[in-house]
């Protein structure tokens, strides 16, 4: 179909989203999109989530941290923000979600808010609660493996 003339096209806002999870989490764009749409559907209802749109247009995730860009219809960015706040977990892994900023174009969104340099993660052994346990370190924060879960810590805790 012929595309719409420019003044009739929908206007979008792009939300720069920073994601965090445990080191063993491996999220795909598809699973994040599914959870986001579920969250939007549950929180905003079908009409509200249709208005908000909430399409994931960029997605990058590795080693328990990532970034995404979520599209929202102009005027419904706050609804999309609320839906994002209600994405609590993906594939059974807890997910930390924060909106770093909102832009009118994908490019501005990427350039202004995303693409912060990240160190590669490193394995370490730390003394935690009277025992030696494995931990994953990155950017000064550690995820310590305790029993079958991860406990978040920082370098400050082990000095």
């Amino acid at each position: 179909m012929k595309h719409l003339p420019k003044h009739l096209r929908p206007r979008y806002r792009y939300l720069a989203v920073e994601l965090a999870s445990t080191p063993d989490a491996s999220l795909s764009r598809r699973s994040f999109q599914r959870e986001l749409w579920y969250a939007a559907g549950n929180l905003l209802g079908d009409p509200g989530s249709a208005d908000a749109d909430c399409t994931v247009v960029r997605f990058e995730f590795s080693d328990g941290a990532g970034e995404a860009i979520v599209r929202a219809r102009h005027g419904h960015a706050d609804a999309a923000r609320a839906a994002l706040a209600c994405v609590a977990s993906v594939d059974g892994h807890d997910l930390g979600v924060v909106v770093r900023g909102i832009s009118g174009t994908i490019r501005a969104c990427e350039e202004k808010y995303l693409g912060r340099p990240r160190q590669p993660s490193a394995q370490r052994t730390v003394a935690f609660e009277g025992g030696e346990v494995p931990a994953v370190e990155r950017n000064g924060v550690l995820d310590v493996r305790v029993d079958d879960r991860y406990v978040g810590a920082t370098n400050t805790d082990f000095e």
Partner: peptide
């Protein structure tokens, strides 16, 4: 599941 320092950082 996080220490006070990690909460503070986040």
């Amino acid at each position: 599941d996080a220490t006070v320092a990690r909460y503070a950082r986040t």
